[in-house]
Design a protein around this nucleic acid. Structure first.
Length: 432
RNA sequence: UCCGCGAUAGCUCAACGGUGGAGCAUCCGGCUGUUAACCGGAGGGUUGUAGGUUCGAAUCCUACUCGCGGAGCCA
């Protein structure tokens, strides 16, 4: 292989002759000078071919370089004559690796469907490139946060036997002689087992929902991070979620300025994400909705428009707590002071991005938990192992789940969640 | 599952009952330290599918297929 220099490190090679390997992002030419935008994954640099400095007829051969043709370019790193802090290549020669004929994604506008049918190529374009880099930084921030706060990573299984919260929204597959297996919609129950073993754990992996949701907030496959902590109550859970979100936002603001600029993200909207987050109970949120003219029955669940209505008055995420027991999952702990509500919390992102976190203190009393399982008509036998966690040294504990793609969509200011993952899986898309 | 919208050139769209167009892309030519470059020319179409109304349908009607985003559900 040729000795290559990456575009990102050109500033360390000013004045030197270097060889770059990459793809033609765009090109322009004339009688006297030709320009090649070379993309190599680490960045893009302009290579300038002048008639005088080119070797091996490079200037005459220039037009062979079509969009996304792969090639090596050799030249001297120089400062851009007009742009401060930008470097370009005073090119001497190039060697084509493969000519790309009729690359389908042109530098002009395309429709959503056209681009996602070619997502494997679309990832080369600047916008998806920037988003996936921010996603990567968010993932690193998530891991750094929990790793440095005493959490142990606990990988939960993806194939599971138990339905968790009802079978209708699960993907099923045959599992040898054991009947159906389901793709996990959450790792939480396993996280609870982990919390009893390690004190503080987090699971982080793909989850699956077979919901026929066709909205800009839903994927059938998405990544979720779920911390679970022993000896923690709802207040501790909220403090953790708040501190965690602020850390992730700080990391993105510190390290992803360039990508956020590419995405034309309004940075000021992210800079106001500071502790403390406003906290309102479900009952107070219902009051807010009524004050705004919305007819709302206490006991109904919030829809996406309701969440937006509650959150729109705040410049940072808002935490809604103490939801009615009837609309929440069986494992959430009922409030001893008011059994009609559970010690649950949702974190609603600003700017209409909706619920990014859902969490709760868990029911740690085995009799109350059994009662809830029976009441929800869930199969008790598949939860026996889960009930063991309440039989052998049950302690108060709590946790939450954060949807990675919703976080990416919010921080990047995306219109649609499908942009937040390299290869989205939606109701109508399984390829590429 | 329900409600709404849509399908026209390779791409993004216009034409809304009377001979299917534009910009971009492609090809040819010109010009330029250019940068979603620009200027001129050329090629490019069974208007999603099937039926119906009409002298005449991309346009109106019906059914179907596919897609979109909203509800529900959720992260």
């Amino acid at each position: 292989m040729k000795d290559r220099v990456e575009v990102r490190s050109l500033k360390d090679h000013v004045g030197e002759e270097v060889t770059l390997g990459g793809w033609c992002y765009n090109s322009r030419g004339s009688k006297n000078v030709k320009f090649l935008q070379l993309r190599d994954g680490s960045g893009t640099v302009q290579c300038v071919f002048g008639g005088n400095s080119a070797q091996n007829n490079a200037f005459e051969r220039f037009d062979e370089i079509t969009q996304e043709t792969s090639l090596y370019v050799t030249g001297v790193v120089v400062k851009h004559p007009k742009k401060e802090g930008v470097y370009e290549i005073d090119a001497r020669d190039f060697e084509i690796i493969q000519v790309a004929v009729d690359y389908p994604i042109t530098p002009k506008e395309h429709g959503i469907d056209f681009l996602f049918d070619r997502r494997h190529l679309h990832l080369r374009s600047s916008r998806p490139h920037a988003i996936i880099r921010v996603r990567h930084r968010i993932i690193k921030a998530i891991r750094d946060y929990f790793d440095s706060h005493g959490f142990t990573l606990l990988d939960s299984p993806i194939l599971t036997a138990n339905a968790g919260e009802g079978t209708s929204t699960l993907f099923a597959t045959d599992y040898f002689d054991l009947g159906k297996a389901f793709l996990a919609q959450t790792g939480q129950l396993y996280g609870e087992a982990g919390a009893m073993a390690f004190g503080k754990v987090y699971t982080f992996g793909p989850t699956f929902r077979a919901e026929k949701s066709k909205t800009r907030r839903h994927l059938t496959e998405f990544w979720m991070v779920e911390p679970e902590v022993a000896f923690m109550d709802l207040d501790g859970d909220m403090n953790l979620a708040e501190d965690f979100i602020c850390y992730v936002v700080e990391c993105i603001l510190a390290d992803c300025r360039e990508d956020l600029a590419t995405l034309e993200r309004d940075i000021a909207k992210l800079e106001s994400v500071r502790k403390p987050f406003p906290r309102v109970t479900y009952t107070e949120a219902v009051e807010i909705l009524r004050r705004k003219g919305r007819e709302f029955e206490w006991g109904d669940d919030f829809g996406a428009p309701d969440e937006t209505m509650v959150s729109e008055d705040f410049d940072r995420p808002v935490i809604i707590t103490h939801y009615p027991t009837v609309i929440k999952a069986f494992y959430m702990k009922r409030d001893p002071d008011n059994p009609k509500v559970v010690k649950a919390m949702d974190v609603i992102a600003p700017e209409g991005y909706g619920e990014i976190i859902g969490g709760s203190q868990r029911e740690d009393d085995i009799d109350l938990l059994r009662e809830r399982i029976e009441h929800e008509k869930l199969p008790m036998e598949v939860f026996e192992w889960y009930l063991d966690l309440r039989r052998y040294g049950s302690v108060p504990h709590a946790g939450f789940g954060m949807g990675l793609e919703r976080m990416v969509a919010w921080l990047c200011g995306l219109e649609h969640i499908r942009e937040a993952i390299p290869f989205p899986r939606t109701l109508a898309r399984l390829t590429p």
